[in-house]
Write a protein that binds this DNA or RNA. Structure first.
Ligand SMILES: [Zn+2]
Ligand SMILES: [Zn+2]
Ligand SMILES: [Zn+2]
Ligand SMILES: [Zn+2]
Lengths: 139, 139
DNA sequence: TATAAGCTTAGAGTTAACTCTAAGGTCAAT
DNA sequence: ATTGACCTTAGAGTTAACTCTAAGCTTATA
C-alpha cells in the first residue's frame, strides 16, 4: 500500500503518517526502488493502533510506550499498561475538574446578565470579573 | 507601584506583566525617568480583571474585547458581553464532552485489565486499542 | 511525449501563552 | 565606590502535534 492509500484507510494525512515515522511511531516496512513507502497490513494495523490510542487521549509519548509493549507483550506486564492508562486518566480528570469549574462560572455569569441591547454600565458579568469573583488560582 | 510589587499583589510574574503590555492588554500609566514602569491603582485593577478573566477560561483575545468594553461601557451592550461569554461556554462544553468521552473510555479500559504483574500477551487494554474500539473520530 | 497526480526530503511555520536570556542601566545600602 | 537587587529591551526558546512549503523525482494516463 502506498502512503495515500493508508491515508485514505485511516483518515490520517500523508503528512501525519510521515510525521509519525519521523518520530519513530510507525514506518513503512518497505520502499519501492524509487523510494516510495510501501505499507504492509501489519503496518496499517499499527497505524490504526496509534490512531485509536490518540483518540483515547494518549499523547504520542504515551503511545511510544504502548507500542514498545505491543511489539513484545511477553516482556511487559499488564501493570505497565495500566500504569500508563491510569496516569492518563488522572490527567484527564484534572483537566475535567478545571473545565467543570469554568463551566460553572460561565453559567453563573450568563445567568446574572440580562444579555440585552442596553449599555453595559450595569453589566453584572463585567462587575463579577472586576470584583475578582472567579475560581481559585492554579499557581 | 513598580512592576515587582504588582507582580506580588497579583501573583503574575513581571515577565507576564510585560508580555501583557506588549500585547496591548495592560500597560503601566507612568514611567520613571529611568524608564521603570509605574502602575496606578487603576492599572492594577485592570491587571486583576485580566487575571480573573483568565482564570475563568477566557483567551487573551477574548480579554482584549472584554477590556475594550470595560473602558467604555456606555458604548457597548450587555449582549456583546454575553456573546463573548456564551461563545466561551460553548467551547468549554465541547472540550468537556471530549474529555468525558476519554474519561469513560479510560475507565472502561482500566476495568477490563487485571493490572497484574504477568505478561501482557492477554492484556485487554492492548486488545481494545488494537481492535479500534475507541470513541468516534473528530475529523 | 507531455501533462498531471503523486511521491520524496529537509526544514520552516502554526498556535497560545508564556518563559527565559543576554546585555546593560538604576537604585539603595554598605 | 562597590555590591546586589531590580529594572529595561529585543528577541529567542518552550510545548505538542501537526501542517505546510519548496524543489525535485516518479508514475500513470492521453
Ligand atoms: Zn444588562
Ligand atoms: Zn450584562
Ligand atoms: Zn492482565
Ligand atoms: Zn492488561
Amino acid at each position: 500500500m502506498k502512503i495515500s492509500e493508508v491515508s485514505q484507510q485511516t483518515g490520517l494525512s500523508a503528512h501525519t503518517l510521515r510525521y509519525y515515522e519521523k518520530h519513530g511511531l510507525v514506518s513503512a516496512s518497505n520502499r519501492s526502488e524509487a523510494g516510495y513507502r510501501f505499507y504492509t497490513e501489519l503496518d496499517v494495523r499499527r497505524v490504526q493502533f496509534v490512531k485509536t490510542a490518540r483518540n483515547t487521549g494518549f499523547s504520542l509519548d504515551d503511545i511510544q510506550q504502548l507500542l514498545s509493549i505491543r511489539v513484545d507483550k511477553q516482556s511487559h506486564s499488564c501493570q505497565e499498561v495500566t500504569d500508563i492508562t491510569q496516569k492518563k486518566l488522572l490527567q484527564v480528570n484534572a483537566k475535567l475538574a478545571e473545565l467543570q469549574s469554568m463551566q460553572q462560572t460561565l453559567e453563573l455569569l450568563l445567568e446574572s446578565c440580562c444579555g440585552g441591547p442596553e449599555n453595559a454600565t450595569h453589566c453584572s458579568i463585567m462587575e463579577a470579573l472586576d470584583a475578582g469573583r472567579s475560581k481559585e488560582d492554579k499557581n
